[in-house]
Nucleic acid binder design. Sequence first.
DNA 1: TCTGGGGTCCTAGGACCC
DNA 2: TCTGGGGTCCTAGGACCC
Length: 424
Amino acid sequence: MASYGLIDCNNFYASCERAFRPELNGRPVVVLSNNDGCVIARSSEAKELGIDMGTPYYKCRSRLKRLGVAVFSSNYALYGDMSARVMQILSRFCPAVEVYSIDEAFCDLSGVPGGAEAYARRVRATVLAWTGIPVTVGIGRTKTLAKLANRFAKKQPRSRGVFDLTASPDPDRVLRWTDIGDVWGIGPRHAKRLRALGVTDALTFRELKRDWVQKKMTVTGLHTLLELRGFPCLGFQAGPVDKKSIVSSRSFGHPVTRLDHMLEATAQYTTRAAEKLRRQKSVAANIMVYLQTNNFRLGQPQYSNTVSIPLPVATSHTPTLIRAAKTGMERIFRHGYEYKKCGVMLSGLEPEHGRWLSLLALPPNHRPDDAPLMRAVDHVNHRWGRDTLSFAASGITRDWRMKREMRSPRYTTVWEEILTVLAK
DNA sequence: TCTGGGGTCCTAGGACCC
DNA sequence: TCTGGGGTCCTAGGACCC
């Protein structure tokens, strides 16, 4: 019988910060979202202080200071690199690893030597020793049950970071203990509806009739039900999967009112999205552009809009994409508003090779030989750092850039910021 | 002053076709 | 008064995930 492990890094971003600042061990640490907007990661000490996930920073800033909490802006260069290190260790232990998110991975633990739990404890110890990141492992017959076991392990100190539901003497007790809203796949909407019907925990949900669940919660709800019963419905995907859409968007550091600034930001986000596109060796047939004012500020005039621009020929050529994106932005931009955010989304993605070519004439400025130019730009930026080569359309001063006032050094990816150790 | 960013899947309904 | 039936494709919106 199959056995899945879910390995989840504990308080991942906070743990990354602490890995390089050991004096912060035992102290409350929080990490803020982009633009220093709100709290998105907390060490266990910070959780105990009652600092909630998603709290806007400006609302808790003084309290955090008073409590002596170490506050960091998010540092994705660091987290992404630490994540890659953790995943690499996992793949030494398990041939089949599905990287589910920056801080989580599923492993197929069927038939590992010495039993799943003992094996998981070795994995856990190795990751901690080699990266400084503590992880928790949950083991179950399906991914949904592995998730559930993981959550149980986190909440039960006795498990010391590993819980194997398949070896539990009373697995139903664990399901009864799990709140319906904490089941993977059941979000706040469905949880509320289910609670109103007296379905308050995973065990009660598991006993519902499948036809009823499918009718009320579509096949995705049915999959959750069956997974809780031990029948795998969610595929296991080892290795990277190509994205079907690619988004790049940011909130601005200050409200933007000028079209030229908006166009710069649009060009910059398009550049980012196109880089991601080329990294997975795809081309896009469509680019969507959007902007929005600050919808938290109800007193101010609000405006948001989106526009979709089909590309005559699917492409990953940054200048072509920038041109389309700017055309779109010019179409939806209205003067007289304070904008908070804009973004682009690439969709209609296809593999770059074997792509369908338009029978119509190639559009102006689209030369079939743009691939070498983009390859060269990507190569330089990979070798010498992001934006070593950038497009003039993105502007130079970039007044709209996001705030990141408390970012830690990029210890592992930028030479100038590497950790220095002084010998006594 | 100040509230993140990036994804997936599913369904209903409209447009369009024969 | 009466107004087919079936199919495909696309999009918007909802729900969920981290």
